[in-house]
């Protein structure tokens, strides 16, 4: 297990180095370089030179990469070209919103998807199974931003049941602890804030959960079906074990293996979905920041964001892989 962990960690470092190299190369290959974006169109060559020197662009490429890497490790991605503020500050301000939204979404997806997939498998061929399967296929094929927008139109604008935008009703006082509003409200005892934040989270979280939910339901169903046909489940039945022991220890423990891995993979699409969902609900997470960075070609900001997301994605997948090794003893031996 230790060797497995060390090996995965090494792979992670290599992957991140490769990624930083890729990003750096991309950054360097941008048309005209970043200095053009930072100077007015009528800048003189001298101004241009001065800026290049200030940015260290006249140094050899490898020195530049080394500096870039060194700063990136210290989470220093430079200043945003649009706002002029440090990118790490911008990200730190906005990440909690995205994390909170993603957590809710993945919780919904797991909480609904796994039981639903299990039921669909057990009731294979019934209307429930059919609904779950076709529903998940449609879910996978529905653009997230469209679903988000429709939910907003129906439940916020037409029915008026839920707020249309933001994380809290504007003007609400709250105490910031973790940046996750619902959690903060519960910690500080400001239950009205927690409730308020939760109401604001429901629609975006549902929209964001749609694809993970669809995928988890499908995988769980397929996986449970496969496991139900396995000999060891028959053995468990032949032992006369209680139904819940068979379901938990013999069916679900095996059926969860592919599901866990898929959850790791879904995190990528979750980040992407968050960008889209947040912009529909003006949620104020990194989504809108990235949206702005993309349209305004704020390359340093974009690069910082991609690095942060890639690191967390790779790290989360490491956790998933490790838990996989923990769940399946055969993996430990194989690696």
């Amino acid at each position: 297990m230790l060797r497995y962990t060390v090996k995965r960690l090494l792979q992670l470092v290599v992957a991140l180095l490769g990624l930083s190299l890729l990003l750096f190369a991309w950054f360097k290959s941008l048309p005209g370089g970043p200095e053009n974006r930072m100077l007015p169109d009528n800048a003189t060559d001298q101004q241009r030179e001065a800026l290049r020197e200030a940015l260290g662009l006249d140094e050899p490429v490898w020195t530049q990469y080394g500096e870039f890497l060194g700063r990136a490790v210290r989470l220093d991605f430079g200043n945003s070209l649009s706002s002029g503020r440090p990118i790490s500050t911008e990200l730190a301000d906005r990440l909690p919103a995205t994390i909170e939204l993603s957590l809710w979404a993945i919780a919904i997806a797991i909480g609904v998807g796994i039981p639903l997939g299990y039921l669909a498998a057990r009731k294979r061929g019934t209307w429930l199974d059919f609904t779950a399967v076709s529903g998940s296929l449609i879910g996978i094929c529905t653009p997230v931003f469209f679903l988000a927008a429709m939910l907003k139109v129906v439940f916020s604008q037409n029915l008026g049941w839920l707020p249309t935008a933001f994380r809290l009703t504007p003007g609400t006082d709250y105490t910031d602890v973790t940046g996750l509003r619902v959690l903060d409200g519960l910690i500080t005892g400001e239950f009205d804030v927690a409730w308020n934040a939760a109401m604001h989270l429901i629609l975006p979280a549902i929209a964001l959960a749609s694809i993970p939910l669809a995928v988890i339901t499908r995988i769980t169903r397929a996986s449970v079906l496969e496991v139900l046909g396995e000999d060891y489940v028959r053995t468990a039945d032949a032992k006369g074990l209680k139904a819940q022991t068979i379901r938990g220890r013999h069916v679900m423990k095996n059926a969860m293996l592919p599901v866990v891995t898929v959850i790791g993979l879904l995190l990528g699409s979750l980040f992407a979905g968050a960008v889209l969902t947040e912009s529909v609900f003006s949620f104020g997470g990194v989504g809108s920041f990235v949206y702005a960075a993309t349209t305004e070609r704020d390359y340093p900001a974009l690069m910082g964001f991609i690095l942060v997301i890639a690191v967390s994605y790779v790290a989360l997948n490491l956790i998933v892989d490790l838990s996989y090794g923990f769940l399946d003893p055969r993996v430990r031996v194989r690696s």
Partner: peptide, 25 residues
């Protein structure tokens, strides 16, 4: 009733020992 008897009064040994044992337990 059947569940109580299985494994206690009647038991069974299967053909393929690898697939008949739960790999993750």
């Amino acid at each position: 009733e059947m569940r109580k008897r299985r494994g206690q009064e009647l038991a069974m040994v299967f053909q393929d020992p690898l697939s008949s044992l739960n790999p993750v337990v």
